[in-house]
Amino acid sequence: MLMLHKTATFPARRMTQRILVVDDDPGLRELLDGYLRDSGFDVQTVADGESMRERLARAPFDLIVLDLMLPGEDGLTLCRRLRAHSAVPILMLTARGDEFERVLGLEMGADDYLAKPFSPRELLARIRSILRRAGDRGADASSRIGFDGWTLDMGAHHLIDPEGVVVVLSTGEFRLLRALAENLNRVLTRDQLIDAIAGREANRLERTVDVLVSRLRKRLRDDAREPRMIRTVRSEGYMLVSRPPSS
Protein backbone atom coordinates (compact mmCIF):
# COMPACT_ATOMS: atom_id res chain seq x y z
CA MET A 1 0.00 0.00 0.00
CA LEU A 2 2.90 2.29 0.69
CA MET A 3 4.09 2.16 -2.85
CA LEU A 4 0.65 2.75 -4.26
CA HIS A 5 -0.35 6.13 -3.02
CA LYS A 6 1.26 8.56 -0.66
CA THR A 7 -1.91 10.26 0.53
CA ALA A 8 -3.83 7.03 0.86
CA THR A 9 -1.32 5.94 3.44
CA PHE A 10 -2.38 8.54 5.95
CA PRO A 11 -6.09 9.09 5.43
CA ALA A 12 -6.79 9.34 9.12
CA ARG A 13 -4.49 12.29 9.64
CA ARG A 14 -6.68 14.63 7.67
CA MET A 15 -10.21 15.53 8.65
CA THR A 16 -11.46 15.76 5.10
CA GLN A 17 -10.49 14.13 1.86
CA ARG A 18 -9.08 16.35 -0.86
CA ILE A 19 -10.52 16.40 -4.35
CA LEU A 20 -9.12 18.24 -7.37
CA VAL A 21 -11.62 19.07 -10.12
CA VAL A 22 -10.19 19.69 -13.61
CA ASP A 23 -12.81 21.14 -15.96
CA ASP A 24 -12.72 23.98 -18.45
CA ASP A 25 -16.26 25.18 -17.71
CA PRO A 26 -16.17 27.85 -14.97
CA GLY A 27 -19.83 27.36 -14.08
CA LEU A 28 -19.47 23.64 -13.57
CA ARG A 29 -16.23 24.15 -11.61
CA GLU A 30 -17.96 26.51 -9.22
CA LEU A 31 -21.00 24.26 -8.82
CA LEU A 32 -18.91 21.13 -8.25
CA ASP A 33 -16.82 23.03 -5.75
CA GLY A 34 -19.92 24.02 -3.81
CA TYR A 35 -21.63 20.65 -4.02
CA LEU A 36 -18.62 18.57 -3.03
CA ARG A 37 -17.73 21.04 -0.27
CA ASP A 38 -21.27 20.67 1.10
CA SER A 39 -20.76 16.90 0.97
CA GLY A 40 -17.75 17.23 3.22
CA PHE A 41 -14.79 17.26 0.88
CA ASP A 42 -11.92 19.68 0.61
CA VAL A 43 -12.20 20.82 -3.01
CA GLN A 44 -9.95 22.73 -5.35
CA THR A 45 -10.72 23.42 -9.00
CA VAL A 46 -8.52 24.18 -12.02
CA ALA A 47 -9.24 24.74 -15.70
CA ASP A 48 -6.45 22.87 -17.48
CA GLY A 49 -3.61 20.39 -17.26
CA GLU A 50 -0.97 23.00 -16.59
CA SER A 51 -2.68 24.27 -13.43
CA MET A 52 -3.46 20.69 -12.44
CA ARG A 53 0.24 19.83 -12.38
CA GLU A 54 0.99 22.97 -10.35
CA ARG A 55 -1.60 22.07 -7.71
CA LEU A 56 -0.46 18.46 -7.55
CA ALA A 57 3.12 19.59 -7.04
CA ARG A 58 2.06 21.76 -4.11
CA ALA A 59 -0.02 19.22 -2.21
CA PRO A 60 -1.33 15.67 -2.61
CA PHE A 61 -4.98 14.91 -3.41
CA ASP A 62 -7.13 11.87 -2.66
CA LEU A 63 -8.99 11.96 -5.95
CA ILE A 64 -9.00 13.83 -9.24
CA VAL A 65 -12.22 14.53 -11.17
CA LEU A 66 -10.92 14.95 -14.70
CA ASP A 67 -12.92 16.21 -17.69
CA LEU A 68 -12.16 14.37 -20.90
CA MET A 69 -12.56 17.33 -23.20
CA LEU A 70 -10.05 19.98 -22.20
CA PRO A 71 -8.42 22.71 -24.21
CA GLY A 72 -4.78 21.96 -24.94
CA GLU A 73 -3.90 18.62 -23.42
CA ASP A 74 -7.05 16.48 -23.30
CA GLY A 75 -8.12 14.42 -20.32
CA LEU A 76 -6.91 11.12 -21.75
CA THR A 77 -3.38 12.42 -22.21
CA LEU A 78 -3.34 13.96 -18.75
CA CYS A 79 -4.63 10.71 -17.28
CA ARG A 80 -1.93 8.65 -18.98
CA ARG A 81 0.87 11.02 -17.90
CA LEU A 82 -0.44 11.13 -14.35
CA ARG A 83 -0.60 7.36 -14.18
CA ALA A 84 3.04 7.07 -15.19
CA HIS A 85 4.17 8.31 -11.78
CA SER A 86 1.12 8.35 -9.50
CA ALA A 87 -1.64 6.04 -8.30
CA VAL A 88 -4.01 8.88 -7.37
CA PRO A 89 -7.61 7.76 -8.11
CA ILE A 90 -9.08 9.41 -11.20
CA LEU A 91 -12.76 9.82 -12.03
CA MET A 92 -13.17 10.72 -15.67
CA LEU A 93 -16.05 12.92 -16.83
CA THR A 94 -17.12 12.17 -20.38
CA ALA A 95 -19.71 13.68 -22.65
CA ARG A 96 -20.09 10.84 -25.09
CA GLY A 97 -20.42 8.05 -22.60
CA ASP A 98 -20.05 5.37 -25.25
CA GLU A 99 -17.96 2.28 -25.10
CA PHE A 100 -15.05 3.72 -27.03
CA GLU A 101 -14.51 6.47 -24.49
CA ARG A 102 -15.09 4.18 -21.54
CA VAL A 103 -12.55 1.64 -22.76
CA LEU A 104 -10.04 4.32 -23.62
CA GLY A 105 -10.52 6.08 -20.30
CA LEU A 106 -10.14 2.88 -18.29
CA GLU A 107 -7.15 1.84 -20.33
CA MET A 108 -5.46 5.17 -19.79
CA GLY A 109 -5.70 4.41 -16.10
CA ALA A 110 -8.91 6.12 -14.96
CA ASP A 111 -10.60 4.34 -12.05
CA ASP A 112 -14.07 5.18 -13.18
CA TYR A 113 -15.96 7.38 -15.56
CA LEU A 114 -19.19 9.30 -15.42
CA ALA A 115 -21.11 10.52 -18.42
CA LYS A 116 -22.48 14.05 -18.48
CA PRO A 117 -25.12 14.96 -17.57
CA PHE A 118 -24.66 13.02 -14.35
CA SER A 119 -26.78 13.54 -11.31
CA PRO A 120 -24.90 15.00 -8.33
CA ARG A 121 -25.85 12.04 -6.18
CA GLU A 122 -24.45 9.68 -8.78
CA LEU A 123 -21.19 11.64 -8.73
CA LEU A 124 -21.02 11.42 -4.99
CA ALA A 125 -21.69 7.68 -5.02
CA ARG A 126 -18.93 7.10 -7.58
CA ILE A 127 -16.47 9.27 -5.67
CA ARG A 128 -17.17 7.45 -2.42
CA SER A 129 -16.91 4.09 -4.09
CA ILE A 130 -13.54 4.93 -5.61
CA LEU A 131 -12.22 6.33 -2.35
CA ARG A 132 -13.39 3.23 -0.49
CA ARG A 133 -11.62 0.98 -2.95
CA ALA A 134 -8.50 3.15 -2.95
CA GLY A 135 -8.46 3.10 0.84
CA ASP A 136 -8.81 -0.67 0.87
CA ARG A 137 -6.37 -1.85 -1.71
CA GLY A 138 -5.25 1.02 -3.87
CA ALA A 139 -6.50 2.04 -7.24
CA ASP A 140 -7.58 -0.75 -9.54
CA ALA A 141 -7.05 0.40 -13.07
CA SER A 142 -8.25 -2.84 -14.59
CA SER A 143 -11.14 -2.60 -17.03
CA ARG A 144 -12.11 -6.23 -16.45
CA ILE A 145 -12.92 -8.18 -13.33
CA GLY A 146 -12.97 -11.96 -13.33
CA PHE A 147 -14.89 -14.20 -10.92
CA ASP A 148 -15.54 -17.91 -11.02
CA GLY A 149 -14.84 -18.22 -14.75
CA TRP A 150 -17.01 -15.24 -15.60
CA THR A 151 -15.67 -11.84 -16.66
CA LEU A 152 -17.25 -8.43 -16.23
CA ASP A 153 -16.08 -5.99 -18.91
CA MET A 154 -16.31 -2.50 -17.42
CA GLY A 155 -15.80 -0.80 -20.76
CA ALA A 156 -18.31 -2.71 -22.84
CA HIS A 157 -20.80 -3.19 -19.97
CA HIS A 158 -20.66 -6.87 -20.87
CA LEU A 159 -20.75 -9.99 -18.81
CA ILE A 160 -18.81 -12.79 -20.48
CA ASP A 161 -19.62 -16.38 -19.57
CA PRO A 162 -16.97 -19.10 -19.11
CA GLU A 163 -17.41 -20.13 -22.77
CA GLY A 164 -16.66 -16.60 -23.96
CA VAL A 165 -20.26 -15.79 -24.93
CA VAL A 166 -21.43 -12.29 -24.06
CA VAL A 167 -24.44 -11.87 -21.80
CA VAL A 168 -25.79 -8.38 -22.45
CA LEU A 169 -26.83 -6.64 -19.23
CA SER A 170 -29.29 -3.83 -18.62
CA THR A 171 -27.85 -0.69 -17.05
CA GLY A 172 -29.21 -1.60 -13.63
CA GLU A 173 -27.94 -5.17 -13.82
CA PHE A 174 -24.51 -3.92 -14.84
CA ARG A 175 -24.24 -1.37 -12.05
CA LEU A 176 -25.23 -3.83 -9.38
CA LEU A 177 -22.86 -6.49 -10.67
CA ARG A 178 -20.07 -3.95 -10.99
CA ALA A 179 -20.50 -2.95 -7.36
CA LEU A 180 -20.51 -6.60 -6.26
CA ALA A 181 -17.55 -7.51 -8.48
CA GLU A 182 -15.50 -4.54 -7.33
CA ASN A 183 -15.99 -5.82 -3.81
CA LEU A 184 -15.51 -9.47 -4.50
CA ASN A 185 -16.09 -11.79 -1.52
CA ARG A 186 -17.22 -8.84 0.60
CA VAL A 187 -20.69 -8.15 1.84
CA LEU A 188 -22.35 -5.01 0.47
CA THR A 189 -25.32 -3.59 2.31
CA ARG A 190 -28.57 -2.76 0.53
CA ASP A 191 -27.84 0.93 1.02
CA GLN A 192 -24.46 0.59 -0.62
CA LEU A 193 -26.05 -1.29 -3.48
CA ILE A 194 -28.80 1.30 -3.87
CA ASP A 195 -26.08 3.96 -4.07
CA ALA A 196 -24.33 1.91 -6.70
CA ILE A 197 -27.34 1.49 -8.94
CA ALA A 198 -28.76 4.96 -8.49
CA GLY A 199 -28.36 6.82 -11.72
CA ARG A 200 -30.25 8.60 -14.40
CA GLU A 201 -30.62 5.49 -16.55
CA ALA A 202 -31.75 3.04 -13.94
CA ASN A 203 -35.49 2.96 -14.09
CA ARG A 204 -37.73 3.30 -11.11
CA LEU A 205 -38.58 -0.36 -10.62
CA GLU A 206 -35.11 -1.63 -11.24
CA ARG A 207 -34.02 0.19 -8.15
CA THR A 208 -35.29 -2.63 -6.09
CA VAL A 209 -32.05 -4.33 -5.23
CA ASP A 210 -33.75 -7.67 -4.62
CA VAL A 211 -35.34 -7.70 -8.08
CA LEU A 212 -32.02 -6.89 -9.69
CA VAL A 213 -30.23 -9.55 -7.70
CA SER A 214 -32.72 -12.17 -8.83
CA ARG A 215 -32.31 -11.03 -12.43
CA LEU A 216 -28.54 -11.19 -12.12
CA ARG A 217 -28.72 -14.69 -10.71
CA LYS A 218 -30.58 -15.72 -13.83
CA ARG A 219 -27.99 -14.07 -16.05
CA LEU A 220 -25.26 -15.89 -14.12
CA ARG A 221 -27.29 -19.15 -14.29
CA ASP A 222 -27.20 -19.21 -10.52
CA ASP A 223 -29.77 -21.24 -8.60
CA ALA A 224 -32.13 -18.77 -6.90
CA ARG A 225 -32.94 -21.17 -4.05
CA GLU A 226 -29.38 -22.17 -3.38
CA PRO A 227 -27.30 -19.38 -4.88
CA ARG A 228 -23.65 -20.16 -5.09
CA MET A 229 -22.40 -16.92 -6.66
CA ILE A 230 -24.50 -14.02 -5.34
CA ARG A 231 -25.03 -15.05 -1.73
CA THR A 232 -27.68 -13.49 0.45
CA VAL A 233 -26.20 -12.51 3.81
CA ARG A 234 -29.11 -12.36 6.22
CA SER A 235 -29.89 -8.90 7.59
CA GLU A 236 -26.75 -7.52 5.98
CA GLY A 237 -26.87 -7.59 2.21
CA TYR A 238 -25.36 -9.46 -0.70
CA MET A 239 -21.95 -10.79 -1.59
CA LEU A 240 -20.45 -12.00 -4.86
CA VAL A 241 -18.42 -15.11 -4.12
CA SER A 242 -15.58 -16.16 -6.35
CA ARG A 243 -13.90 -19.44 -5.68
CA PRO A 244 -10.32 -19.98 -6.77
CA PRO A 245 -10.10 -21.60 -10.22
CA SER A 246 -8.88 -24.92 -8.74
CA SER A 247 -12.06 -25.62 -6.75
Binding site: D98, E99, F100, E101, V103, A156, H158, I160, D161, G164, V165, V166, V167, V168, L169, S170, E173, R215, K218, R219
Partner: peptide
Amino acid sequence: SGEQPARIDVNALVESVAE
Protein backbone atom coordinates in the same frame (compact mmCIF):
# COMPACT_ATOMS: atom_id res chain seq x y z
CA SER B 1 -20.83 3.01 -32.53
CA GLY B 2 -17.58 2.25 -30.82
CA GLU B 3 -19.02 -0.97 -29.48
CA GLN B 4 -17.10 -4.05 -30.50
CA PRO B 5 -19.03 -6.98 -31.97
CA ALA B 6 -19.04 -10.11 -29.83
CA ARG B 7 -20.83 -13.45 -29.64
CA ILE B 8 -23.90 -12.68 -27.56
CA ASP B 9 -26.30 -14.96 -25.73
CA VAL B 10 -29.59 -14.29 -27.52
CA ASN B 11 -31.79 -16.15 -25.02
CA ALA B 12 -30.40 -14.26 -22.02
CA LEU B 13 -30.90 -11.02 -23.94
CA VAL B 14 -34.53 -11.81 -24.73
CA GLU B 15 -35.20 -12.78 -21.13
CA SER B 16 -33.57 -9.61 -19.85
CA VAL B 17 -35.61 -7.40 -22.21
CA ALA B 18 -38.77 -9.26 -21.21
CA GLU B 19 -37.97 -8.69 -17.52
